[in-house]
């Protein structure tokens, strides 16, 4: 349910930036959410679409979310690979658990499109 708090604070932040830019409306907002960020994309969309209705500046904004895959580099054999195994991933080649996260923990607002 943290998605509701996150959506609330996102709407406030978007409204602030839109006002700074003298926008009439926000038409779209683009996010990048990693596979292992712990954010449920459908819940975040649902919360955003409910909360945005309270603010005319944002009420017509479309939320576009790019899901970023979980990628690691193996510290032992140096190969990089993609996985869906969030909890205890290991290298598919040498089975090592010593891994460096390359992507997958993102929870970022990338940009937004405004009508000015």
């Amino acid at each position: 349910m943290h998605e509701v708090s996150i959506a609330l604070s996102m709407v406030n932040e978007l409204a602030r930036i839109a006002k700074e830019n003298n926008a009439k409306y926000i038409s779209a907002v683009n996010l990048r959410i990693g596979r292992s960020s712990g954010i449920v994309i459908d819940s975040l969309k649902f919360a955003f679409d409910a909360i945005k209705l309270e603010n005319p500046l944002i009420s017509s904004a479309e939320i576009v979310i790019e899901e970023v895959p979980l990628r690691y580099e193996c510290n032992d054999c140096k190969i990089s690979f993609e996985t869906d195994y969030i909890h205890f991933p290991s290298c598919p080649d040498c089975k090592s658990y010593s891994l460096k996260l390359l992507s997958g923990d993102e929870m970022d607002i990338v940009n937004m499109e405004l009508e000015v």
């Binding site: 604070s9 996102m10 009439k24 409306y25 607002i109 990338v110 405004l114 009508e115």
Partner: peptide
Amino acid sequence: HPLHSPLTKGEVKTVEINQSLLKAN
């Protein structure tokens, strides 16, 4: 009707934000 009427005519502008969703917290 911003919900169902189009956001037409105005100039479209993209604002780069690149910040965490948790920034306020």
